[in-house]
Design a protein around this nucleic acid. Structure first.
Lengths: 334, 334
DNA sequence: TTGTAAGCGTTATCAC
DNA sequence: GTGATAACGCTTACAA
């Protein structure tokens, strides 16, 4: 059996409240007694039981993090930010990976609530009405990552996806490309839509007609990027450029091109979205939209902590700055 | 304020013990009362407070996981295994990332102990005496990942690194290579040593003299692989093959080779170790030692759970099977 | 400045 | 079968 505050009190010949006071510095304690108690704590290696403490204080010092897939590079870079900043504020991270299954998401949200987490950082591929409703009604603070809800007042952090999509599409156009395939996520979540809109607007503003035959939908998986590109190739529909709304898909696309005898960027230009670590590792290095991934996590957890402390958020929807990173996967065809 | 067992008891007109019994099924309760209580629980959406429960049961249902770097692909694939299996047994994962800092490791180990985790899965780049001593003395069950301690009885799970290193070195030899550079982790932990020994033994058994000028040490980082390879190139010391004891380093090496005008595998063959996802994504696809990464995590957490339940472990040191995966980064020069 | 005691939400022991 | 009640280890009025 582990050593408790009682033992310390007994050994020091004081009451447990006094011991509690020296531990928490909550009320003045005479120097003499403090010294003694501290010494005994030191000697015995006593550590307060955080569970008991949580029970009385109604604070678990836990933040739940729900993500669709831990092994996704983009996500675990966000996780780093969350973890590191959370730790600074003395919060621990309870990790849940949903693998994109919505039932699972709901179940975890519930589980975390039951576990008394003080806040939840939530990330999903697809934010539908059911989820939004659930999150709106929950009493635990939630912040969304990379998914915002337009109308609703659920806090979120992301970049300006519309603008980013617009920029990178226009970049391709400025390089002389007119046939630009888009690979976006299937489904109709706000995020995916935003990307699509940015893409369409850029085409429109540059008087390029939208060709719906070369906008594809699929999950954010490398295999999907590969598969979709093979379809493009089989259909003899190979455009001069591909905009994949996710780096991993972009790399899948490059692989498919490569395996079918196409050279990137000489035959086809490819751009991605996110700037995961792999993007600069891969050859050709990927031209992409850089998101401040780590910061997204860091900001999200700061928001959660603020909400936990019932501080006012400066802004409910934060959009961090992004950059267009030119590397080697695009060629000018002017 | 959240709803408690008391409220349920009151509403149902029974005692809290009865409610507790229907929740836990710990003792028989008349059907009538059970129905009623269940219904009220349903209606109110009551959830037992796990913190209070933990306090009395002295079980936190938490498993601590300490890893050097969440964003490392190898590691977060292990994490998936841990998370998934842990969840099956109703354990939650408390995540700590140490960034390889030993002080941090010790601090987290302590923190987790304080947090009352029931077991710890520990992964480190370098397992030194201090750490071993600490782990041996701690009363919380610990299992090590990918690092074993030779003599000690701390449970661990990994592959047979000596054998794997031997195999892949011999594979290169059988392909006609005689100058095989080794990139291994700096430091003298058992893991790195095992790799080195496997490498040396394979050379020895094939009558190839060891050339210490082409065994390099560095961290498991892509930049390090790059840097080390550039050194090889600058020194005009380019071997016919490179064995990097980590896929990420191997890819760094390939990049350096590529950027300096060498072709892989035509000019230089490169092999890695681990078979992270990237290895099959990258072009050329990397020939490497496949570790059952997910399973390593899964087995580790099962071991922890067994130890928590004080079941006997079949085996303290488990070594999972590995494979040599032939892909595209090696060329025969017979 | 210090101690006493109530209470946090449960489970478990004991009577009934 | 069911209900009091102690206990888990701690914080925090309230008293002294």
């Amino acid at each position: 059996m582990s050593i408790t505050i009682k033992d310390i009190a007994k050994q020091a010949g004081v009451s447990i409240s006094t011991v509690s006071r020296v531990i928490n510095g909550s009320k003045p304690v005479s120097n003499e007694i403090r010294q003694k108690v501290m010494q005994i704590i030191e000697e015995t290696g006593y550590m307060p039981n955080p569970i008991a403490r949580s029970l009385v204080m109604k604070k678990s010092q836990l933040i739940g993090v729900v993500v669709p897939d831990i092994s996704n590079t983009f996500i675990n870079e966000i996780l780093s930010g969350i973890e590191e900043i959370g730790r600074m504020y003395n919060y621990d991270i309870l990790l849940c990976s949903t693998y994109g299954d919505q039932e699972q998401e709901l179940r975890y949200l519930n589980l975390l609530k039951a576990k008394q987490v003080e806040g939840i950082v939530f990330m999903t591929w697809e934010l539908d009405e059911k989820l939004i409703k659930y999150i709106s009604n929950i009493d635990t603070p939630v912040v969304l990552i990379n998914r915002n809800t337009d109308k609703l007042e659920i806090p979120s952090v992301s970049i300006d996806n519309f603008k980013a999509a617009y920029e990178i599409t226009e970049y391709l156009i400025n390089k002389g490309h007119k046939e630009i395939a888009l690979m976006r996520r299937q489904g109709h979540d706000a995020f995916s839509l935003r990307i699509y809109e940015g893409y369409k607007k850029a085409l429109e503003d540059n008087d390029i007609p939208l060709n719906e035959n070369i906008v594809y939908e699929g999950e954010y998986k490398i295999e999907k990027g590969y598969e979709l590109t093979e379809k493009l190739i089989e259909g003899k529909n190979v455009p001069t450029a591909i905009f994949a709304s996710n780096d991993v898909m972009a790399i899948g696309a490059i692989n498919a091109l490569f395996d079918n005898g196409y050279n990137v960027p000489n035959d086809v230009s490819v751009v991605g979205f996110n700037d995961i670590e792999l993007s600069s590792i891969y050859r050709p290095k990927l031209t992409t939209i850089h998101q401040p991934i780590y910061d997204i996590g860091a900001v999200a957890i700061r928001m959660i902590i603020k909400k936990i402390n019932e501080e006012e958020l400066d802004c409910n929807i934060v959009e961090l700055p992004h950059d267009l990173i030119e590397r080697e996967s695009v060629k000018s065809i002017k």
